[in-house]
Design a protein around this nucleic acid. Structure first.
Lengths: 312, 312
DNA sequence: ATAAAACATGCATTGGATGAATGCAAAGGG
DNA sequence: CCCTTTGCATTCATCCAATGCATGTTTTAT
C-alpha cells in the first residue's frame, strides 16, 4: 500500500502542477490568447505553457486549424478530469466553515473535578442542543492528564495557569476570577473571629491535591513569618471535603467556587488571614497550540467563555 | 454556470499548486526534514514551503512539540482530500491505455464508394468483434467531406494523397499500391490490340469524378504529345460504370481495384498506353492531425493497415 | 554539560517564467 | 490580387522567487 502511494507521488513529481490552471483555460477557450486573458498571462507565456503541457501529456492537445485551434480527442477527454482535479484542489485550499449542527467532532476535556461537576454540566447541556453530533468526554484532572495536555492529546483543560505544573506548548484564556477561602466545621473555635496568621498556622490542615503536591506557596509565606503549618490530611477528591472537615477540627483552604459546591450547614466559610496576601486568581481554559485555529475548537471555547460570563 | 466556474478558478488563482506535493509529504511524515527527503528538497526549502502553506491555508498545520511536530486538526482533516486531489491530478497527467473491448469511440470514416463497399466491410466485421462498443459511420467521399476532413470533423479518410484536392492539416499512411486501367465494352475495336496513345486520345472517354474535377494529369500528358481527348460523360458513382460502358464505345480510366469491382463479362480491361507513364500509386488512409496521437484512432489505423496487408 | 536531533532563518545564487517585440501563417475584405 | 486583421510561435532581455549552504535556536538524550 505504501509502495503504491509512493509510485503515485512519483508520477507528478516532475510536473508543474500550476500548468493545470493553464490547461483548464485552454480546454475551455480552445484558444491560446483567450486562455491567456483568463489566467492573467500574456499570449506568449500561454503559448509556452501549452508547449509544456504538450510535452507533459505527450499530446498536441490543441492543433492549428486555420487561424484557430481545435482540440485533440485526448484534450476533449481531459475537460472533465481537469475540472474535477481543480475542484478537489480548490476544496483543499478552501477553509471549511464550521457548522455546529452538522459537526461530528470529538473533544476530550480535562477539568478539576469540582469544575467538571459544577461549571460544565449547564454548558454542556447547551452544547448538546446546538451541536448534537459533537461528542464530549469529560475527564478529571490527573497527573497523566497534564502530560497528555502538553502532548496535544487533550482538547481542552481548565485550571490556574500560574499555579501547578509548568505547561508547555499550550495557550489559555481566562474564564473567571476566584480566590482561596478557608473551610472548617460549624462551631470550630476559629470560626467565630477573624482568622489570624498564628491561628491559621496553628490549626491542623487538610490539603486538596491531585498530584500529591501543592500548597507550597502558603507554606513559603508562613515560613517568612517564622511559622509552619501541619498538614495532617491530603484529599484528592473535592467530594470528600465535607466528610473530613465537618466532624473534625481540620481546616482546608480551597477555591471559593469549590467551597460553594461542598458547602453544607455543618461547615463554615472563613476568609484566610490577610497576611497570606493571597490575591484573586484566574481560572482559565487551556489547550494545546495545535487546536488554536481549529474552527470547531474555537467554537467550543467561545461557548464556554460565554457561559462563564453569564454565570459570573 | 460560467460565472460559478470563474469564481472557482479565482479561488486557486494565486495559489502555487506545487505546494500540494509538499503538503502531502508533510501530512504523511509529520516532519519537515522527512518530507523534504520525500520530495527531493532540502530541509530549509521544505520549512519555507510549510510556511507558505500555513499562509495559504491560514492554519499552522504542523506545530512544534518538543523536537518534532504534531498535526493540527485542520491538517489531519486534509489528509484524505489532499491525497484525493493528487490522485485526480495524477490521472490527468497519466495517459489512459486504450482497451478496444471497452471502448465507446465513434469514428466517421470517409472513403470513395468503391473502397467503402469493397475494402472496408471485411475490416469492419473484424472491428465489430474486437470492439463491440465502437461505433463506425462510413460515408462516401464528397466535396464537402473533404472540407470536413481538413477541419478535423472526419476521423479517417481514404484516397490518393498526391491526387485530388490539396489537403491541409492532415497526416496519412499508405495502405496498398494501385494503378490506373482502362475499361471498355467487350468487343470494343480498341480491345483487341495494344492500346496506343493516338487510339486512347481518339476514343470517347467517360470520367469518374466525385468533385466534378479530375483527370487533368492525363490531359496534360496528352497535351505534351499534341493530343487531346474528348470527355463525353462524367460519372459520379462507380456502380454506374458498367451500365454506361458496356453498351457504348466509351472508355474509362479507373483504379484497378475499382475495375475489379465493376467487372462483368460485358466489359474488357485494357492496359493504358505506356506513353502516359502512369506509375503505380498509393491508396492511403488520411486523418486530421488532431487524431494522430489518439490511442483509439491509432488502434483503428493499425487494424485497417493490417487488413490491407493481408489482402494484398 | 555536551551532543544530537529537528526546525527556522539569513544570504547568495540562478534558472525558469515572464512580457515586449517580432516573425509567420491563415483568413477576410476591398 | 493585395492589404489588413487575427492568432499563434519564437527571440531576447529581465527579474524574482525558489533554492541550498551555512548558521541560529530549541528541545531531548546521554
Amino acid at each position: 500500500m505504501f509502495y503504491i502511494l509512493y509510485m503515485h507521488q512519483t508520477n507528478v513529481k516532475n510536473v508543474d502542477l500550476n500548468l493545470l490552471k493553464a490547461l483548464d483555460a485552454l480546454l475551455e477557450t480552445e484558444s491560446v490568447s483567450k486562455a491567456a486573458v483568463l489566467v492573467n498571462l500574456s499570449q506568449p507565456a500561454m503559448s509556452r505553457a501549452l508547449n509544456r503541457l504538450q510535452h507533459a501529456l505527450k499530446d498536441p492537445l490543441l492543433v492549428r486549424s486555420g487561424r484557430g485551434m481545435v482540440l485533440t480527442p485526448r484534450a476533449e477527454a481531459l475537460r472533465a478530469p481537469v475540472r474535477e482535479a481543480l475542484a478537489q484542489v480548490s476544496s483543499v485550499f478552501t477553509p471549511k466553515v464550521f457548522d455546529p449542527a452538522k459537526a461530528q467532532d470529538h473533544f476530550r476535556i480535562m477539568a478539576p473535578d469540582y469544575l467538571a461537576q459544577t461549571l460544565l454540566p449547564p454548558v454542556l447541556g447547551q452544547l448538546v442542543n446546538l451541536a448534537p453530533g459533537v461528542q464530549i468526554d469529560i475527564e478529571n484532572l490527573s497527573a497523566s492528564g497534564v502530560q497528555q495536555m502538553c502532548e496535544g492529546h487533550i482538547s481542552l483543560g481548565f485550571g490556574v495557569v500560574n499555579d501547578g505544573p509548568v505547561l508547555e506548548n499550550v495557550a489559555s484564556q481566562a474564564l473567571f476570577q476566584d480566590r482561596q477561602v478557608c473551610l472548617m466545621r460549624k462551631g470550630h473555635p476559629l470560626a467565630a473571629k477573624t482568622l489570624s496568621l498564628e491561628d491559621y498556622a496553628g490549626a491542623t490542615h487538610a490539603l486538596l491535591s491531585i498530584t500529591g503536591k501543592g500548597g507550597g506557596r502558603i507554606d513559603d509565606i508562613l515560613n517568612e513569618h517564622g511559622l509552619k503549618r501541619t498538614i495532617a490530611l491530603r484529599v484528592a477528591h473535592f467530594m470528600t471535603i465535607s466528610a473530613v472537615i465537618a466532624p473534625t477540627d481540620l481546616i482546608i483552604t480551597v477555591p471559593e467556587m469549590l467551597a460553594a459546591q461542598v458547602m453544607t450547614e455543618d461547615l463554615e466559610l472563613v476568609a484566610p488571614p490577610k497576611e497570606l496576601g493571597m490575591p484573586h486568581f484566574s481560572v482559565s481554559q487551556i489547550w494545546h497550540q495545535r487546536f488554536t485555529k481549529d474552527p470547531a475548537h474555537q467554537w467550543l471555547r467561545r461557548m464556554i467563555k460565554s457561559a462563564c460570563l453569564v454565570q459570573s
